[in-house]
């Protein structure tokens, strides 16, 4: 599926004070996207409301990052991640996504919220190398499941080697 996606190769860049905001329900379907989101991804509000957030998924994103994403937010924790998204027209843009669960008055997760900010060039450069490694792990595996396991292990091995946890690693980039 991912390989069939059209990629324009054109990069869209956020401004420093922009924040891309989106909200999803528990299943990851978009319930809100702000104007910055719509503008950079070339989607209208109408198109994104109700759509799965994965419409923004770029084929060069390692799946293990999203696995981590979901593990974290489903357990009620926040996560920062550098993400490359694919716009409707095949353009791509790098963001530093900060995804947090939204809670109701009883502390139950009602959905997820994502603030995405402009990443630094250095961070993007660094993360690109990491993602390439992880992606290679995923692609060289015989099946998707094994690939995901391998890249996940690789990610943790790299973090362990650096002696930091994921958050510390990401926020230090």
């Amino acid at each position: 599926m991912a390989k069939e996606l059209y990629l324009s190769g054109k990069e869209r860049v956020m401004t420093d004070d922009e924040i891309i905001v989106s909200k999803t329900n528990l299943k990851g379907h978009i319930t809100y996207g702000n104007d910055v989101f719509c503008n950079i991804a070339d989607y209208s509000t109408k198109e994104i409301i109700g759509a799965p957030h994965s419409i923004l998924r770029h084929p060069e994103m390692p799946r293990c990052v999203f696995k981590l994403f979901w593990e974290r937010i489903e357990s009620g924790r926040e996560i920062f991640a550098y993400v490359v998204n694919r716009g409707k027209e095949g353009d791509h843009y790098w963001v530093l996504a900060h995804v947090t669960p939204s809670f109701d008055a009883n502390g139950k997760i009602t959905g997820y919220h994502s603030n995405r900010r402009k990443p630094t060039d250095a961070a993007v450069k660094a993360i690109k190398a990491l993602y390439a490694t992880l992606l290679a792990e995923e692609r060289k595996a015989s099946d998707r499941k094994t690939g995901l396991q391998n890249s996940d292990q690789r990610l943790h091995a790299i973090l362990q080697e650096k002696g930091v946890d994921y958050d510390e690693f990401v926020l230090a980039l």
Binding site: D16, E78, T100, N115, K118, D167, E168
Partner: peptide, 22 residues
């Protein structure tokens, strides 16, 4: 969110988790 989470993180001793200025 940022304030809350940053303060939560700080209360857990994760001071690297500051509020993003962007």
């Amino acid at each position: 969110r940022e304030s809350l989470l940053a303060m939560q993180a700080a209360s857990e001793g994760r001071y690297y988790r500051k509020i993003r200025q962007e």
